[in-house]
Every structure is written in C-alpha cells, then in structure tokens.
Design a protein around this nucleic acid. Structure first.
Lengths: 331, 331
DNA sequence: CTCCATCATGTTTACGTACACATAGACGGT
DNA sequence: ACCGTCTATGTGTACGTAAACATGATGGAG
C-alpha cells in the first residue's frame, strides 16, 4: 500500500505537506503542490479512508433507511437522495427493511456520519435516545411529532383535503377510502385531511367504505374487490398511496370493472408508474428532489454542528389529474 | 467516546483482553469474559469501526453498483443482494448511476472490501485494471466475457430460445423484437438465443420488425406504436426486458390495441409488476435470490483470498406464461 | 519435587492520517 | 539595519484497535 509518507519521500517533502495538499490547504506553495501532486500520480497514491476517519471523525458517508425498496416510491426517493448526497460528496449506505436494524449501531460505531430515515412509524427507544444525544438524524417523507430532530415532509393533510375537494366537486357522494396502515404519519395525515374536508363539505365518509390495511399491492387489490362487490359500491376510491392505487385499479380490472367508467381511483405520491397508459392514475405529487436535497442539507449541517435546534420543513403537494378520474362529472 | 481502554479499566483487565472478548477469542476465561461483557454494557461501549478497519484492513462493507434504480428490476435485485449481505454480516454501500463513478475509488481508499457490479456494459480501463490487481469484484446479472472475475448470470441465450420456441409453437409468423441497447450482455444473449432459434425453426426474424434502442419505458412505448402502425404489423413482440415489455403494452394500449387479442407481448426478468392484472405479462424468470446469494458468497470468499481463480456461475431461466400471450393459437 | 507445556493475560507497538506546535526564511516598516 | 510579522514547511504525536511478543501461573509427567 502506498501511504502519504511514500509520496512525501518521492516528492522530497514531509508527510505533513502531502497531507496539506490532500486537504487543499492554501498553506502550500504552488510549486510544492505541483511536485506533490506529481508524486501522488506517479506512486498511484490513494488516501486511506479509515486512517482519515480515525483522525477527523468523519466518514463522508450517510446512512439511509428504507422500509421496502420494492415499493416503487422508494427507488424514486432513493435516487433523489443519492443524487443529493453525491453532489455533497457523500457516500450512501442503505438499510432495507422495516426495522432499520443496524443503522443506529452503525452510527454509534462511526461507520456513518448521519442517518436519514424515510419510513419511521414510531420512535423506538433506541432512536429516541440517539436523537436525544444529538446524533445527526433526519426524517424524510414520514415525520414523527414526538421526535425532536430535523424532518422533511409534505403537506399530506393539504393533499388529502385537495382530493376531497376534487371528488366532491366532481359530484361523487359514495366515496371509498383505502386507508393504508395506521402508524405512518403520511397515511395518518392524508386520512385526516381527507376526512376533515369531507366533513366540512357535509359529506362525511361512510365508515363502511373505509378499508384499513397495509400499503401492499395485493391487500389493496383485495380491498377494492371487496368494495366493488357491495350492493351499493363507491363511485370513487381514494388510496393512501400510489402502490395502493395500483392495487385498487388491478382489483377493479380483475373484477371486470373499468376505471374511471365504473369507479374513479386517486392515489398519492405520483410515482412514475401512475403516468403509464395502463394505469394513468390521478395522484398527488410531492417535490421529491427538493425534499431529498433539503434533508441532506439539514443533516450535513447537523453533522458539523450538533447543537442546532431541530428544524421541520414541510413542502406543498399538488394534485395531478389523469385518466383514472374522468373530467366529466361522475355518477 | 468510550474506548476499549475505558472498558478495560472498568473491568480491571488490560485493553487487549477486552479486544479478545470482542473477537470472541477462546483464549479468555469464561469468568473474565463475563466481567468484560458486563463492563461493556455498563459503559455503553461500541467498538470504533475506523480503528478496527485500520488494523484489520476489513470494513465489513460491500459496494453495489446499479445503473438505474428506478428500473423496477433493480430494486428486486438489490433487495436480494441486501438480504444476502445482511445475513453475511456486511453493510451495503450503493452507487446509482450509469458509470458507477466513485465505486472503484472507494475500493482503493479501503471504504469497501469488495464491489458487485450489476450493470456493467463494457470493461473500463479502470475496472479492468482493478480486476487485474485481484481486487474483489463480482459481476451480477450482466456478465462480461473479457473480464476475468467472478460472474453470476442467467442463461439469457436459453431464455431467448425458449421464447422463440413458444411463439412459433403458438403459430406466430410475424414476430417483432424490441432489442434493448447493444452493449449489455443480457440484451445481447437474449437476442442471440432468440434469433438463432428462430433461424433453426426456419422463421428468421424480419429485420424490419426489429427495433433497437434502450431499456426505457417511453422508448419501448414509441417503438411498439411504430410497429403497430405498420401495414402488416407483428402478431407478437418479444421485449429485451420487462420494463421494455411494460412500455410495449402501454404503447399498444395508447394506440387502442388490445393485448393479447391484437398482439402478444413477452418480456424478460419477471419483475413483480408483470404479474399485476393491468399488465399480466408473459416473461422469463431468473432466480434472483439465489443469484444474489451466489454473488455475495463468491465475493466474500475472494475478499479472504484474492488468489482464487475467476468463477462463472450461470443459472437457468424459466418461461412464465401469463395473459399477454393467450394460450390459444394466435393469428 | 522438578521441569516443561499450556493457558490466561499483559505490554508494546503499528496501522495512516491530520492536528498542534515549532522553526526557518522572507519581507517590510521605521 | 533591526525587529516583528507572516508564510511555507517540518516534527512529534494521538486517534482506537489488534497483532506480535512476553510473562506469570497452573498442572501433569517423569
């Protein structure tokens, strides 16, 4: 292995000067810098990351926790996070799984400088304690009120309200709701906004048309089939996220019903798939790229200064109308 | 920060004994081990990863390079790799992007112990040189004949042949082909197998019905629309991968055609989406989980012993028939 | 009872980098 | 011309762990 000492010997300077060149310190004469850079090239030198980390306490690596990477929303989010991290000169370690097991340990072991959680549903004791200690931790997409750390979310309540407005204005009176799981803040806020606005409009949700459950495709598919099999089925169904909406459309298709002719479907997140012809689903878009950048920025600031107060950023959502909700009044 | 020295002091032993307990060395008396473990708990000790890496030259981290994480095939592959790595006690660093820029540098800097490339299309000078040096590098999914490193692939040629057999047996004579990009081994081998078998069956592909291009959804969609607009359109279209097949189906849908009534569509990879009702696409399945495990195993072996000869594993594929190809003879 | 083998544990050191401090030379103001 | 200041570079060291080597204790064989 080539070390900075070898380079120093080759360039006829001290190891410290090599280190200074490495860090772009301006305390090095241009001529010396050139000599050192040339020696580095000649020797094929690469700084040893672990040694550097040992001194600086920085890994230039951020951990990202995702509950289920096969839910197509998360690859899109991950791509945005990955891009933001890359442009900030950071590597990305990925934990896939509902628990994010290992991520907090990694933080303690100094493997990563900070963590971004995209799918927290509740604050584990371990997570709460890490936040308490001031560890650099940020929540992206899903928030957690009881956690005093940086959080970047969208206005899910507002999005839910917008969908309520849209469906009622279109004339729907029997509206179904695939609620998703109970814990995620996204699902909760979307539901609250949706319900509250319906009440405000004098069209409170019929609980008989509300199906709790998960975000999985097959659960949503089954739920939709159940709704459509009712004597008086809903004319429109709002789904807690796009994966659920895809399942709902497939449920309708499998039951021989047509969207939007027989039933309207609205999703949430605007994943790429919803725009494809076979689905063509009306949904609510969040500004993923900006959110990812914000989360990365907040987190990296906190890596430098753990004393910062927790900051919460909430981005606006936007209804995107597509073919799963015809523009003509329904029913 | 709590160090092994602090733990040693607390337990009344030397730092080295703490280190031995950490490594599960059997050279420690049971009683002493308990004392040390108790001291670790009490002090809230976490070994410092960088210091350990410095001594052992091991990071317990593997890098994975993926060209485009929003292509739904890769999340499925990544999940399998992630699971395999987790069960081997390894962390996963992810590089998303066509070039995998930074991954090889990371290997040189000792940030990762090895790399898995899932989407190589050609051996860059840098990659070839790294393999030459014996760096732990494995290719998964896509192979590269000219690279002398561990490779785990499927029998794409055989898969292509199987599709040819299937379509001809079903009576198709005008068959289209969305070829995908030229470089990836997967696309090349699928095409060769498909073409060769068609020739063997006396039904050589009509070059007029072959559309080169990328793996992107919108390119495939446009290509399908082009094929269907011909005076004598194909009755079946084989697509280089599932994302392309999804695009093809959407192209047909957008042109007012029905699958499989107007045209059959066959994809490749068996991503989850192809099984959903709205698409329901016949495709070729690869054993992703086994392949991921094989790649991880091979790579970790090589991390321990760089002298190993390169090994190439090729898994069998399996045709999965769905609704995009009716079982009744076509045309 | 002695001697050597064996085992549990301790001491010293090195991994490669960057920080704190030291030093030598250059330059300018009075 | 002298002193102070500033700049470029060097010296020594520490980060936390684990490897190599060292040591003391214990036990069994002769």
């Amino acid at each position: 292995m080539v070390t900075s000492r070898d380079v120093a010997r080759l360039a006829g300077v001290s190891q410290m000067t090599v280190s200074r060149v490495l860090q772009d310190s301006d305390r090095v004469a241009a001529q010396t810098r050139e000599k050192v850079l040339e020696a580095m090239r000649e020797a094929g030198y690469r700084p040893h990351a672990a040694a550097r980390t040992m001194r600086t306490r920085r890994t230039s690596t951020i951990g990202v926790v995702v509950a289920d990477i096969t839910n197509p929303f998360y690859p899109q989010l991950l791509e945005a996070v990955s891009t933001a991290l890359k442009s900030a000169g950071q590597r990305m370690v990925l934990w896939n799984g509902p628990d994010g097991a290992g991520a907090l340990e990694s933080l303690d072991e100094g493997t990563v400088d900070g963590l971004i959680f995209t799918t927290v549903t509740e604050a584990s004791a371990q997570l709460a304690e890490a936040v308490e200690r001031g560890e650099p931790i940020a929540l992206l997409h899903r928030g957690l009120d009881e956690l005093d750390c940086d959080q970047v979310t969208t206005d899910n309540t507002g999005g839910g309200r917008a969908v309520a407005d849209y469906l009622i204005a279109a004339g729907h009176r029997r509206i179904g709701f695939l609620a998703g799981p109970e814990l995620p803040s996204t699902a909760r806020h979307r539901e609250h906004g949706f319900r509250d606005r319906l009440v405000e409009l004098g069209q409170a949700l019929d609980e008989f048309l509300v199906v709790p459950g998960g975000f999985a495709h097959d659960m949503a598919r089954a739920a939709m089939r159940g709704l459509l099999a009712l004597d008086d089925p809903p004319t429109a169904v709002f789904c807690a996220n796009d994966l659920t909406a895809l399942g709902a459309v497939d449920g309708a298709v499998s039951a021989g019903k047509r969207v939007p002719d027989d039933v309207w479907v609205v999703g949430y997140d605007d994943i790429a798939l919803t725009a494809w012809d076979s689905y063509d689903i009306t949904t609510v878009r969040q500004p993923i790229a900006e959110m990812a950048r914000a989360a990365v920025d907040l987190l990296l600031e906190r890596v430098e200064d753990r004393g910062l107060a927790a900051r919460k950023r909430c981005f606006a959502s936007e209804l995107v109308v597509r073919g799963s909700t015809a523009r003509t009044p329904a029913v």
